[in-house]
């Protein structure tokens, strides 16, 4: 039975060596360094901007690993509520407000913005080119109803982009749920990239964040054209919220605050503003911190102020004082 012993010995040795190699490669870094889990949205993550933020931040702060979990805004917020994320980067003011009212979040900082856009086939069957967004939606809807053909695709996945789309239809005077039953209107139920591919394949219009659209367009994956101009109705505001340590005691609060402080700093803001210029010919995101501090340029500041600030006692705040925590020099 010497053989059995030998066999067991070999199995044990192989097991231990694989385990220790694995440990050396990947685990000790999590032991030495703190992992900051940040739940974020696909539109932010899929552009690759957060990868360059991660790389830069980890090079100046080697005690932290930035762990971005990319999901829709809905699941990102849920992650934070369950205590699985220390911080969130999202773009859905209404959902953010609810999140903070449930006292899950503190120290909200708007750190970037860009615009949603309505894209469609270059033949522009519904004739929406250069219309203002709400008129464009109306034109698409009438075209679809009259011709009784599929013309619009919605993500319908409770993402930030989808929330925005619902808001736009509401503003235009329609009920999203009712529209989604009509023949010209289909739901993809997936992320932005897949939805853009679908729209491209079937010559449909859709609402897209500018980042994903530019990336797909510049790489020749889609032929869709941008149909409408940037404007207040299509504003897309990204904010960072730290998970409230009173509600979720396990949160890595200090590390989260440190990262937030870095994110709103000039150097990081510059990085955000530059990202994508080389690759896509245009910036995918615009830094927002200095605009809010200086209230300049006025027009953009007004748009952000009107659409993404929260009301507290009749005044609009980026982050109402009650939800500002600690003195980290984050708010003016």
């Amino acid at each position: 039975m010497r053989k059995e012993t030998k066999l067991i010995a070999i199995i044990v040795i192989v097991g231990i060596s694989v385990a220790s190699i694995g440990y050396l490669l990947y685990f000790n870094q999590t032991v030495e360094r703190e992992t900051l889990v940040i739940s974020t949205t696909t539109s932010l993550y899929d552009t690759g901007m957060l990868d360059s933020i991660k790389e830069t931040y980890e090079s100046v702060n080697d005690q932290v690993i930035l762990a971005f979990i990319s999901a829709g805004t809905g699941i990102a917020l849920e992650n934070a509520r369950r205590g699985d994320a220390d911080m969130i980067l999202v773009h859905s003011p209404l959902q953010e407000l609810a999140f903070m009212q449930e006292s899950y979040g503190v120290n909200r900082k708007i750190f970037a913005y860009n615009f949603f856009t309505i894209v469609g086939p270059s033949t522009d069957p519904a004739g929406v080119l250069d219309l203002v967004p709400l008129d464009a939606l109306n034109a698409i809807l009438s075209y679809g109803r009259i011709n009784n053909e599929t013309i619009w695709v919605s993500r319908d996945d409770a993402s930030g982009t989808n929330t925005k789309e619902k808001g736009l239809w509401t503003t235009a005077g329609y009920n999203y749920t009712e529209l989604s039953d009509e023949d010209w209107f289909i739901s993809s139920g997936t992320g932005m990239g897949t939805t853009l591919n679908l729209a491209d394949e079937r010559s449909l219009y859709t609402l897209s964040d500018i980042g994903t659209y530019l990336k797909y367009k510049s790489e020749g994956l889609i032929q869709l054209d941008q149909m409408v101009e940037e404007g207040e109705t299509l504003l897309n505001v990204y904010s960072a919220i730290i998970v409230n340590k009173t509600t979720v005691p396990t949160v890595k609060y200090t590390a989260a605050v440190e990262f937030l402080q870095w994110l709103v700093r000039e150097s990081a803001q510059q990085l955000i503003g530059e990202f994508g210029k080389d690759a896509y010919g245009a910036a995918l995101f615009h830094p927002a911190v200095s605009i809010i501090e200086t209230e300049l340029p006025v027009l953009i500041y007004q748009w952000i102020h009107n659409s993404a600030f929260f009301d507290s006692g009749g005044t609009l705040y980026e982050c109402p004082p009650a939800w500002q925590d600690g003195d980290y020099d984050l708010f003016t």
């Binding site: 694995g22 685990f27 992992t35 979990i69 509520r81 369950r82 205590g83 396990t250």
Partner: peptide
């Protein structure tokens, strides 16, 4: 998940 029964192990999002 932290809110789950094994949350104290702090295993979520680790290798």
């Amino acid at each position: 998940s932290r809110a789950g029964p094994l949350g104290f192990l702090e295993l979520l999002y680790t290798p």
